[in-house]
């Protein structure tokens, strides 16, 4: 007598099989197609690969709806690098918008960089970020010269209360909107101590304008 056996799965087994398939698909698509990232931090890892910074740790993460509706701006760091990156959610999952690495291996009191994003001809946020190595510095004055109808100066003050700490180092991140980046020239960061005495002054050279 021919025995015909056909297995009938229960809900539990069917679900287990489906979850396994989904997990395998997730792994394969993430690793080989490099898309379908479920978490934004994975897109930051892609920025790390593009800029070859190595593994970085999170300092802060902000929601930035002014650049993209699902945009997130990350400040990450490791011993050698401070990186500002932006990611957003797209049809492909989380993808990177841009990453600006700052080489902090050179000795110095302050390391700083800036980044701005243009979307559809409209300027959006302007970011200034960096690392403060001198323990005496208590406040940063960031200065631009705005070219336009008569040059004007613009000051932004960043207090140590706003700064973040990670791995024993201090980091800062400032942002403001309505930035016409092309007109902002010669950014300068001046570090002052509690009394207001100037300790260090650097020009922000590492800057990137991203046009989307």
């Amino acid at each position: 007598m021919k025995r015909k056996e056909k297995r009938l799965p229960s809900r539990r087994r069917r679900t287990a099989r489906r979850v396994l398939v989904a997990a395998a698909a997730l792994f394969l698509v993430n690793r080989i197609f490099l898309v379908g990232l479920l978490f934004p931090i994975q897109a930051v890892r892609r920025c790390e690969e593009r800029e070859d910074t190595g593994r970085t740790n999170l300092v802060c993460r902000n929601w930035a709806p002014e650049i993209y509706k699902t945009g997130l701006v990350y400040l990450t760091e490791n011993e050698n690098v401070t990186m500002l990156s932006a990611v957003r959610l797209s049809l492909y999952g989380w993808i990177e918008v841009y990453g600006v690495p700052l080489d902090c291996t050179v000795e110095g009191p302050i390391h700083g960089g800036w980044w701005t994003l243009y979307r559809k001809e409209e300027p959006s946020q302007f970011y200034v970020f960096g690392r403060i190595d001198d323990p005496d510095i208590d406040r940063l004055n960031i200065l631009w010269t705005i070219e336009g109808d008569g040059d004007s100066d613009m000051w932004v003050v960043s207090d140590s209360g706003e700064w973040m700490e990670r791995d024993g180092r201090r980091y800062f991140l400032c942002s403001f909107g309505n930035a016409n980046a092309a007109a902002y020239k010669f950014p300068l960061v001046v570090g002052c101590d509690e009394a207001g005495k100037e300790i260090a002054r650097i020009g922000l050279e590492h800057g990137v304008v991203t046009v989307s």
Binding site: M1, R3, K4, K6, R7, L8, S10, R11, R12
Partner: peptide
């Protein structure tokens, strides 16, 4: 459903 028995079809 609780996993105490399995089912299959057989002649």
């Amino acid at each position: 459903q609780e996993g105490f028995v399995e089912a299959y079809r057989k002649q």
